[in-house]
Design a protein around this nucleic acid. Structure first.
Lengths: 339, 339
DNA sequence: GTGAAAGCGCTAACAC
DNA sequence: GTGTTAGCGCTTTCAC
């Protein structure tokens, strides 16, 4: 293993100069810096992270906690976060908690001490999670706690867009198939929907809920939706929409002819299924990237530059409506044989 | 921060006894062990990983390199690997290389020195990857290099099953839509297909190829498949199958009426799309878990127990055919109106 | 601008 | 069975 000593010997300087030339090049004479960097490159020197961590107290690695990596939503966020961490030369531990609050707390307890900070994506037990962190730097994705830095998507705006789209098509009774009880996103969506519907006295919302955020959740919800008399439905996420469509089909109902369906997230399954889903698009990769940026800015040691502390505002990513084939005017509005 | 010194003071022993009581309890008197463990618990002691790493040269963390986390195949493998690493009390760095061989080599170079070993899943530039590892412990998933430990799926057997299924339905001209040039899985599948077809003189394989392992790859392949005169097609993975079906539909062709389609991997999209895909199932999570187990067995320090070294054989996971709605007898074989 | 030296917290010889 | 001690490779004062 090549150490600072080897580099120092080759470059003809002391080990402290090597350390400086590599970590803070501006504090070293140009000629020295070049010599050291050349030697390091030549020898294939790679700083030993463990030693640096031990000494400096910073690990250069972050954590990301997600409920389920197999969910395309979290996979996309993880991908973005990982990408950004790599660009910044940091490592990223990704932990999948399997939607289990106990595992979540445990994982955070294990992760926190060996990272410089953690991104918590859609925590299932936020209070315990923050507790397990013991005051270490953290950024929340899709959650909201007093003074904790966060990054979120504009769920309310998204819901308004979905509702206005359906209303424009002529729907007046719209069901919402909600996600997990503990989901903050779900609460925001319900609130957004309530707000938006309050602006139009010709639209009524039927909120259903607490369904699993997977295909099965949608299957379970379908019959309730049909019974509700709604002509259109908005679902917690795309997977739920897929399950819903599946069950409707099995009952001989057509989407969008008998019922219009709007998904959420625009994960790539939305465009894969039949019919392709009208859905709310969020740039999930960007969400992950932003969270890492924000986390890095929060961590004391390397405060990205300005050292101005962390801006207290929460970046909110736009949520856009993507119209595909799963929404159409309600059957009653259509002239025989049209669209 | 609570250190061994604090625990030692409270327990009334020396720091080395603390270290032993925690790491190798059997080498310490029962009473002492209890006292130390009680003190540690009471103080909320958490060993500083960085220090342990620095001293012991083992990091307790592994790496997993995948081409694309957003691909459900790799997401499932990652999930399994992560799960297993956690069960073993180890960390797992997951790195996504975006299908880029340069990034792959770079990521491995950065990962290797700070982990105890790396799992390489479907490496895109295996030679460079192994080179970048510099002889560190490694386990390959879906690849094959002389003496390097690996875990793989029985692609050949899978291909045989797919072919026999299609042949039993009455197909005699079968196309294969291949994946990336550099893909080892692709080569194995081609070989398996060639072997299997050699056993039946009434089956002919039309191998097409080098398509991207995503939906677009399938879309790009569709017209070639149609032109090939095949009545059935096997694709590199499920996403390719989805793209293929999509493009066939756009051309007014029906699956399975005009063409039967078999996917590969049984990622969850296979059951989501219309028609649900007949596909080859592999237990991807298990693949990830097995790879971690194997890696742990390879690493010298903690050699899971027996110390017998690593078994040289490569565990091969079964590949099973899952029949769904995308395969049927060829149109010519069907009586008017049947099935 | 550069070097000498002191540890960060832990483990593993080595004595006892 | 337990304590003493010497570092692991690095960063960071503190002198010069």
């Amino acid at each position: 293993m090549v150490t600072v000593h080897d580099v120092a010997r080759v470059a003809g300087v002391s080990i402290s100069t090597v350390s400086r030339a590599l970590a803070t090049p501006e504090k070293v004479a140009d000629a020295t810096r070049d010599r050291v960097q050349a030697a390091a490159r030549e020898l294939g020197y790679r700083p030993n992270r463990a030693a640096a961590v031990l000494r400096a107290g910073r690990s250069g690695a972050y954590g990301l906690v997600v409920p389920d990596l197999a969910n395309p939503y979290f996979a996309a966020v993880a991908k973005g976060a990982q990408e950004r961490a790599r660009e910044r030369g940091a490592g990223l531990f990704i932990v999948d908690t399997d939607e289990d609050p106990d595992l979540e707390a445990e994982a955070i307890g294990a992760l926190a001490p060996q990272t410089d900070g953690v991104v918590l994506c859609s925590p299932r037990a936020p209070a315990r999670a923050l507790d397990a962190l013991g005051g270490r730097p953290v950024v929340l994705i899709n959650h909201d706690v007093d003074g904790v830095p966060a990054v979120e998507a504009d769920h309310r705006g998204g819901m308004r867009r979905a509702l206005e789209h359906l209303r424009a098509l002529g729907h007046h009774r719209i069901a919402y198939v909600g996600g997990p009880e503990a989901s903050w996103s779900d609460r925001r969506r319900r609130a957004g929907l309530a707000d938006a519907s309050a602006r139009y006295d010709d639209v009524e919302i039927v909120a259903l809920g607490a369904f699993r955020p997977q295909v099965e959740g949608g299957q379970a919800a379908a019959d309730l939706v049909v019974a509700s008399g709604a002509t259109a439905v908005i679902t917690f996420n795309d997977l739920v929409a897929v399950g819903l469509v599946d069950r409707l089909r099995a009952r001989g109902l057509d989407v969008p002819d008998d019922l219009s369906v709007v998904g959420c997230d625009d994960s790539y399954v939305a465009s894969l299924v039949t019919p392709p889903l009208t859905t709310l698009h969020v740039d999930l990769r960007r969400l992950g990237r932003l969270a890492v940026d924000r986390l890095v800015a929060t961590v004391p040691g390397r405060g990205a530059g300005t050292g101005a502390g962390v801006a207290p505002d929460v970046p909110v990513l736009d949520v856009e409506l993507v119209v595909r084939a799963s929404t159409a005017p309600p059957a009653a509005d259509r002239p025989e044989g049209a669209l």
